[in-house]
């Protein structure tokens, strides 16, 4: 009973949220221009399903492209940065500085370079999401138990051996954990760029709909983004569980 209730809990919570939303809109007679009720949003879905579908597909693939770039680049850079303390210390301030720049400020530059369209969106998604991957991979490498490193070095292991046998497998839980953060950030990046400068994508659709005071359509866009975000998060969480299940099991062990 409690177990199945626990499984249903997310659904119950979401449904309750929408019911309360709908009820308050009707009860307080909220104008659709301020906050459209779920029923109005649903109507917008039915009416505009075709543009919503095509634009959400654009957002999805640009996000995935940006995310793919940031996984490849983040993993690479993380390994480089985690390789030695000197690189770690030298590189870190630059990384933090770069990460502190609001990416919305970078979009106009990207538009100047690449023009309006998907490329700035992909790059914004990439720029906003690679940082957590780099930091996590580097942390995983930098926190190898010194005693374990001694054991291996006393056997004549090279730095590369230590990385291959210990460092990289050890940083994998950090890496897969960071993917969950990175994928949601990548969505933010894409939509930011689409809102500022694009001619397709959910961000573009929302800014257009907003300009025409079609609030139900704007909210429909938000919900599409939320659903896409949840699905991608679930996919990376599943991947994490599959690839580095040992890290989760280890925590639950009494012998640990």
């Amino acid at each position: 009973m409690t177990k199945s209730f626990e499984k249903l809990a997310p659904w119950i919570f979401v449904i309750t949220l929408f019911v309360v939303w709908e009820a308050s809109c009707r009860l307080f007679n909220v104008s659709t221009v301020i906050l459209p009720a779920p029923s109005a949003i649903y109507a917008a879905f039915v009416r505009f399903w075709s543009p919503i579908l095509s634009n959400s597909f654009v957002t999805l693939w640009t996000t995935m492209a940006g995310f793919g770039l940031s996984v490849a680049f983040g993993l690479f850079l993380g390994l480089v940065v985690g390789w030695s303390r000197t690189i770690y210390r030298g590189f870190y301030p630059v990384m933090i500085g770069f990460n502190s720049i609001p990416k919305v400020a970078v979009v106009p530059i990207l538009v100047m370079w690449f023009g309006i369209g998907e490329v700035p969106a992909i790059l914004t998604a990439f720029l906003i999401s690679f940082f957590p991957i780099v930091v996590n991979v580097a942390t995983g490498l930098a926190t190898i138990e010194p005693e374990l490193e001694d054991v291996l070095r006393a056997l004549g292991a090279s730095k590369l051996d230590v990385m291959r046998k210990v460092g990289i497998p050890r940083s994998m839980p950090y890496f897969f954990g960071s993917l969950k953060v990175a994928i949601t950030l990548a969505f933010v990046g894409t939509v930011v760029s689409e809102t500022v400068a694009a001619n397709s994508g959910i961000g573009f659709l929302m800014s257009q709909a907003g300009a025409n005071f079609q609030m139900p359509l704007v909210f429909a866009g938000l919900i599409v983004l939320a659903v896409e975000g949840i699905l991608m998060y679930a996919a990376t969480a599943w991947l994490e569980q599959r690839m580095t299940g040992w890290a989760f099991r280890a925590q639950g062990s009494a012998a640990g």
């Binding site: 138990e145 005693e147 374990l148 001694d150 054991v151 070095r153 006393a154 056997l155 004549g156 046998k165 210990v166 497998p169 050890r170 580095t244 040992w246 890290a247 280890a250």
Partner: peptide, 18 residues
């Protein structure tokens, strides 16, 4: 440099969990 032939064990077992 490292002697390349010593076995070592410490207070913590330091086994690799994976």
């Amino acid at each position: 440099g490292p002697v390349k032939m010593a076995g070592m064990a410490f207070q913590n077992a330091n086994l690799l969990p994976w």
